[in-house]
Each structure stands twice: as structure tokens, then as C-alpha cells.
Design a protein around this nucleic acid. Structure first.
Lengths: 192, 192
DNA sequence: TCACTATTGACCGGCATGGTCGAAAGTAGT
DNA sequence: ACTACTTTCGACCATGCCGGTCAATAGTGA
């Protein structure tokens, strides 16, 4: 997944894969008919990995948008840390959708995830309790400001932990910091 | 530059380059000794292209941070539209710094731009008139919120115009929309 | 000992690569 | 028209990596 995430299907090298995996070339083609079959296997495996995370996201039900966003981002971040390569592998799929001939099953997984993600995001907007928002700014813009702040913070964090090993990352301070941002956002965008 | 921006130095193909340029292969190696020399030429050319933009950025002097940010982003965006491939070419350099043996001159250009960009950003923070900010939120956090909003908006715009030809983009509505975001930010993060 | 599985890495044909070069076309002065 | 020179082309080359094969061997358990 690391190789495919970095190079995409076409430019990924099976030689590098077996080298990084520390196995002989033969093994790869003993267990997988060819490069594409390996890729399809990984796609399905990757989506299976995310199953639990997605289920958690779907279960979110707070009407307070910021509260819901906070939980969503928490799931995303811990998920990213837990299966970093899986996340990056799938992100890559969204960039070059058609560079590999995906199996039907893979396509199914892919479109299902896309749809679910859209649903989660949509639910956040549509079920947001806009009566909590200050009334002198359109609610859709407030939603956007919050999203930008959340995304920006997430990006900042990921930038800071890039290169570090998952095990040596201490998340406590980030979570704490995160809370202060959320309370700020409530302060400026909610009533009172 | 388009080819190098997309593939990086090593994976860029001189065959694709001459094909896209509509010239014979011989011409490329008639005017450039080899691939690397072409690359170094492009690096220096690219930085020369940005010279004016950078000068404009350095000239910004508003003490009102949002005002300054607005102008900075305006320069960035129009610059991106004017020399899209140049921007993407240079962005790529920051990703894979060492994949090509840059000439001394190229290295000099590269580090100078990096430094200047850092200076511009730093100046925004250090010379910001924090007395304009509301006092119940630390000023460094306000700066961050504004930055996230600005970056988020810029990203949204770029996502919307991706794929479009430069000539067929109408910027007026974006600029107008931009202004409303800025006034919102002032409303929520400035005093009163 | 045997039947079977797991594993290896040298090796294959094929393809794209960066780079070459002889030929031809273009240009300008006489 | 002839000449000297520059510009342009694309077929061609050696090389290296590609995905994939396979004969050989090591491991395993009855």
C-alpha cells in the first residue's frame, strides 16, 4: 500500500515492493496472479480496514455542529494514525481514479465509501442546529468557517507528526489544544 | 515545466516533453546538453517569473493583518492564474528537494525564495496590530483562525477552477465573495 | 522416505528511457 | 545558382527497469 500510495498503480514497481517487504519476487506472484490482482486485493483490504471508522462516523448524531465535527475529526485523526498507509492509499485512489482496471468488487467498495463520506458530511450540514449560530452571518458561511478551521488544524497536526513513528506520537497535548479551538469557535460563531 | 511539475525530475520524460511541445527530439538536445541542463534552466526561469510577485509581497505594509492577508492572497491567486505551471513547477520542487542535482545558481534561487517567503509570513505575524483584535482570545490563535480561513478559501477556489483554462475563468465573483469573508472575519475577531 | 508447499532469484521479452547523428530543410550573402 | 552555415527532424542506439516465469531448492509433517 505504501508503494501504490506513493506512485499510483501504473508507476508502482513490484521490484520495490518485494524489496521493501523483504521477500523474493516469486512469492508475490505465487500468491497473486499479477500486479492488478494484488492491487485489487489491497483495495478491498483497505476498505475493510476503514469499516469500523466509517461506522463510528455514521453513528454521530449531535445536533450541535461543532460537537459533531469534533468527534468526526477525532475519528479521522486516530484512524489516520492507526492505519496511516491505508488512508494514504485510498487518498491516492481519489487522485487517479482510472489508472487501474479495478475489479467489480473494488469499484463497489470505492463508490460505497465515497457515498458514505458524502452522507456524513451532508448530515453535518443539514442537521446542524443553526439556531445556535449568531444571526448576523449566514449559517452556511459559519459552517464553512468552522470547516476551514477544523481542516486547517488537522493539516497542521499532520504536518507536525509527519515522519514520526506512530508509536512515538503523544496525542494528549493535541487533543487538549483542540478543545481550546473548539471553545473559541463556539465563542465567536455561536450566540452570546 | 508542466511535465516536471507532474512527474518530478527523474520520472519526467523528454519524449513526452518534445511531443507536447510539438518539436523534434533533436531540438531539445540541440539547445540543451541534457535533461538536467534543461531542468536547471527551467528552475532559473521559473524563479525569474516570480520576481515581480515576490517584490509585491515584500512591499506589503498594512498593520491591519486581515488587510495585509487579503492583498497577499490576491497576489498569490493572480500569480497562480498568470503562471500556473510555474507555481506548480516550484511547488513540486519543495516536495522532492534532492531528486535532481541542481546547479549552484538554481540552489541559490531556491533558497532565496524560501527565505523571502518565510520573511513575508513572519512579517504578517510580527507587525500585526493586535490591538485591533478582541481580547478574550489569544492573538496568536486569532492569527491562526484567519490563516486557516484564508487558506481554506484559496483551496476551495483552486479546486473549483481546476481543469479550467485560465482564459475562461471569471474572477470577479470570487473577489466579491472574498470581500464578504473578510468582513465576516473582522466582525468576529476584531473588537466590537 | 515421500508428497507437498513455500520460497528464492536468475532470467525473459518488451518497452520506455536519455541521448546521438546523419540527412535534409531553411536562410542569407554573393 | 552556388556556398557556407544554422535549424530541424526522427530513426536509431544502448541501457535499464518493467511485469512476469520457472527451475531449483528448502521446509514441513505424516
Amino acid at each position: 500500500m505504501i508503494e501504490f500510495a506513493e506512485y499510483g498503480f501504473k508507476l508502482a514497481s513490484t521490484n520495490r515492493i518485494v524489496q521493501a517487504a523483504g521477500i523474493g519476487k516469486g512469492m508475490l506472484f505465487y500468491y497473486f496472479k499479477n500486479k492488478l490482482e494484488l492491487y485489487n486485493f489491497l483495495v478491498e483490504y483497505a476498505f475493510a480496514c476503514l469499516h469500523d471508522d466509517v461506522a463510528q462516523m455514521e453513528a454521530l448524531s449531535d445536533s450541535d455542529m461543532i460537537e459533531r465535527y469534533r468527534k468526526l475529526n477525532k475519528i479521522k485523526m486516530t484512524g489516520y494514525i492507526k492505519h496511516r498507509s491505508v488512508y494514504e492509499f485510498i487518498s491516492r485512489m481519489y487522485l487517479n481514479e482510472d489508472e487501474a482496471a479495478l475489479s467489480e468488487e473494488s469499484k463497489r467498495c470505492f463508490s460505497m465509501l465515497t457515498q458514505k463520506h458524502a452522507e456524513v458530511i451532508e448530515k453535518i450540514y443539514f442537521t446542524a442546529d443553526v439556531s445556535l449560530f449568531r444571526s448576523d452571518i449566514p449559517s452556511d458561511k459559519i459552517i464553512r468557517y468552522v470547516r476551514w478551521a477544523m481542516d486547517g488544524y488537522t493539516q497542521d497536526i499532520l504536518r507536525r507528526v509527519r515522519g514520526k513513528k506512530t508509536s512515538e506520537i503523544d496525542f494528549a497535548p493535541y487533543v487538549e489544544e483542540y478543545e481550546t479551538y473548539l471553545s473559541d469557535l463556539k465563542k465567536v460563531f455561536y450566540k452570546n
